[in-house]
Design a protein around this nucleic acid. Structure first.
Lengths: 230, 230
DNA sequence: CGGGCCTCCTTACGCTGTACGGGTCGCTCC
DNA sequence: GGAGCGACCCGTACAGCGTAAGGAGGCCCG
């Protein structure tokens, strides 16, 4: 077999490149496609070669979170009002920006929730959020509670329970089932009936962005009141 | 090899028994231990035999969620005040009861979040919650928003981002790192310093139950205000 | 009593992450 | 300048995973 033609051209293989390739792969083909062999293939390399730049697959997952959160940190820099004047607006803007980034990486929330240790990017992001709250007059204690209350929302996502199966069929059959079982599930059936004649109809009824903002504002309201109360 | 000694004695193998064994296994040895082979072994059977009672592993996971939520539904029956008098107390009691059940199955939240379709138990549970809100005077629309805002909290859990590695070492090193990087992460370092001299010290500083209730009450407050506002 | 069905077992395949050992390059130092 | 060395990469192999395919035994119904 031909000897390696040009070492330098490809030997740019580095931790950074591995992680970026992992993110790209997940973006293109979904999280299940992110295997060590497939990742290596994308980098034109054998699977075992990856282990010279990352300890194991866990480290890869840690790394992709680092990359994605890094993207967020880059995106939120300088957006939104001055925290000292309007902490609430500043926080809101930052979180919605984070959400916009995560919408480009739909698989990322699932990975983030499996992580156990923070990395520098994440710590930096949270430090920034904390800074906003402090500038707004929060005590450390209340700020701490606030971060817990926001939870994953602070990073711009909420994992929906029992998410949409597939956009078309899923809703229809659930709807039909509920109609038949209207006496067993009266309130759900009622809600469905109520919502049905309001907007377009089937389960386009859940506007993720609207629900996210509703819940976020609910929390911000609550925090504002706790803050005012002292 | 000896012919089967007593078919009847073990042939109680049934979907229910399989799912219950799966729950028990996960309780005892954690989610990673829940493999088809290991599960079969616990039931004194070969792996492939399971496939006569469940379609595949996904169906097993669907099933264990069904079992756990069934446990919740059983536990919440009849607890809390009358919803027509005190929707908020009723909702709160129900959710905290659900949480108590889930604390017995620490692996369950992770499984629930991977599910894509609801089962009858889950639908029934949410119908009950909806009933409480309706009795409290919520419009279908506001109730719908409320369920989304509660999210997984409605089932009694919140997945903490970057959960505790292990109780002892994890906190210490994070603490030391933060102290060293006090100029890079001023707010986190400040919060840590503030909290440190308040209670016992290291990262027993996050009381999960207290944080859960804080966030829950924040949301209930907000919903109450939205309700009053009409 | 005979056929079919329901259960269960056996075997095997493709996939995963990764341990281990060897080969090849470029740099450094005598 | 050549010998050593460390960084990088490859090939092979293994255990474990979910599960497809086919065969064997006991049960019920005709």
């Amino acid at each position: 077999m031909a000897p390696r033609t040009d070492v330098a051209a490809r030997s740019a293989l580095t931790r950074r490149r591995v992680l970026q390739a992992a993110v790209d792969l997940a973006d293109r083909e979904g999280l299940p496609a992110l295997t060590m062999r497939r990742l290596a293939q994308d980098l034109d390399v054998e699977a075992m070669s990856l282990y010279h730049h990352v300890a194991n697959k866990e480290a890869v997952l840690d790394g992709v979170v680092e990359v994605v959160v890094g993207e967020i940190v880059g995106a939120v820099a300088g957006v939104g009002p001055d925290a000292a004047v309007d902490w609430r607006g500043a926080l809101r803007a930052r979180i919605l920006t984070a959400r916009r980034v995560l919408l480009r990486h739909p698989w990322a929330p699932a990975v983030i929730e499996t992580r156990t240790a923070m990395n520098a990017e994440v710590i930096g992001y949270f430090d920034g959020l904390l800074g906003i709250l402090r500038a707004g007059g929060f005590s450390y204690d209340l700020a701490h509670h606030a971060m817990h209350a926001l939870g994953s929302r602070a990073l711009g996502f909420t994992r929906e329970l029992f998410a949409p199966a597939d956009p078309e069929t899923g809703g229809e059959e659930a709807m039909a089932m509920l109609e038949q079982l209207a006496d067993v599930y009266p309130h759900l059936a009622g809600m469905l009936a109520d919502t049905a004649h309001r907007d377009d109809g089937v389960l386009g009824w859940c506007d993720d962005q609207a629900e996210f903002e509703f819940a976020l504002d609910l929390l911000l309201d609550g925090l504002d009141r706790r803050l005012a109360r002292g």
